[in-house]
Design a protein around this nucleic acid. Structure first.
Lengths: 228, 228
DNA sequence: GTATACATACATTCGCGTATGTATGTTCGA
DNA sequence: TCGAACATACATACGCGAATGTATGTATAC
């Protein structure tokens, strides 16, 4: 088979990435040979080595396809939340983070691979880099929101803004862990609202409780993932 | 080197397991060859193959060294908690689960390996088996405690016992995730009390809040891990 | 015609499993 | 009690498959 058109080439690239996602999710990154990926994508290893330098670069491209900076989400949300209250913003950030597990299969697959199907070893590994990038990105946004909340005096007296941030991060990370590792008992396609509220309730002081009982529930549209 | 005494042999076995822990934590399970482990343990691959059938069995033995069923912890705790209140029991279970991260280096290393340094693939894999065993074990204990708490009417009206159990599991799993994956920002050797209380506060109804503000803080001794 | 988009073929490496060698502890009969 | 026979606890050596990376072939789009 000789040279193909540009569009076909780009399509081949996507097909390879799709195949890599599926194979790596099933067998793990190191246990998935480039040959297996090629077979599923109906190409040969030559095609893979044409589009990607090596396995590492392939993984890198795979995770790059789905990386949506949380900063963008905050930007988007803050334009839709009335009054820009940090507590509601935080609440929506948490909900959207969890709901993406249920309605974005690609994000779910890539997170699954990066979290549980990949041995993180040396620095600079694409999976590790993605995890740290997402984590740091989320932590920055959440930490700033928690600081604002603390400033407003909404936080429980025993908790620092840092504590609250840690709790929120652990809350989301923990549910990601449960849903991805134990899908047979933990389903992602559920109403996360009550759980998010319960988590926040524990972080706030008593007078804030009333606020959290009534749900603002503004409908918000997802921002498009930036492809570059 | 010829035959060694029984005690020396057992010592060799432990040395190999120690070396495997360190190497696998540093480089990941599949990236750690038996040769590397042998070198660190100052033996040859022959010694490893004498003590263990293969790499899988080695991993299995490694995780078996640190597996402490949560049921035992509950047994132990329930004898020390005055009145056997399920809420305090739950609180202590959560605290001990998190504190073990700080004061049991071996548990910490093995959890790190099993959670982040191992590609879980086929069923029956020792790492996957351990994860599921620990998870199911913990879920059973926590679920029963949540049921008791629900029976007592302490739970928030919007939450089922199952919801509460999910929250507690995610809370612990999430902090494990944060501490093990991002040790530079999340330290395990801290006072988990306020965070545990915050998590529980969100799950309980208003009248229960007062109970959670005063700390029972009974000193409890760890149960010995059963070696068999 | 030429760069492209692959397929094919080949060399090399690497880790695993096993077969075998060997020196020493252990046991048991005389 | 003492030494031979056996079992043990490794070390060494070898064969194998599998995966990687690269070099080269080739047909087609531009």
């Amino acid at each position: 088979m000789g040279r193909r058109t540009k569009d076909e080439s780009a399509q081949t690239r996507e097909t390879i990435l799709d195949a890599a996602e599926i194979e790596m999710q099933a067998r793990g990154v190191s246990q998935t040979s480039l040959n297996r990926i090629a077979q599923r994508a109906q190409v040969t290893r030559g095609a893979i080595y044409w589009h990607f330098a090596d396995k590492r670069a392939l993984l890198e491209a795979m995770v790059a396809r789905t990386h949506l900076p949380l900063r963008d989400l905050r930007q988007c949300l803050s334009q839709h939340i009335p009054g820009n209250e940090p507590l509601w913003l935080l609440r929506e950030v948490m909900r959207h983070g969890l709901e993406r597990l249920g309605n974005d299969p690609r994000h779910r697959r890539v997170c699954h691979i990066v979290m549980h199907r990949c041995e993180v070893t040396d620095e600079g590994h694409p999976a590790d880099a993605l995890m740290r990038a997402m984590f740091e990105d989320a932590r920055e946004v959440i930490m700033s929101l928690c600081n604002e909340i603390k400033q407003l005096g909404l936080l429980h007296s025993q908790l620092s803004a840092r504590d609250a941030s840690d709790m929120v991060m652990a809350f989301v990370a923990g549910h990601y862990e449960c849903v991805l590792r134990h899908p047979e008992t933990h389903v992602a396609d559920r109403d996360w609202g009550p759980l998010v509220d319960a988590a926040l309730r524990g972080l706030m002081n008593d007078p804030t409780q009333a606020m959290l009982t009534r749900a603002p529930a503004a409908e918000i549209q997802e921002p498009e993932p930036a492809d570059h």
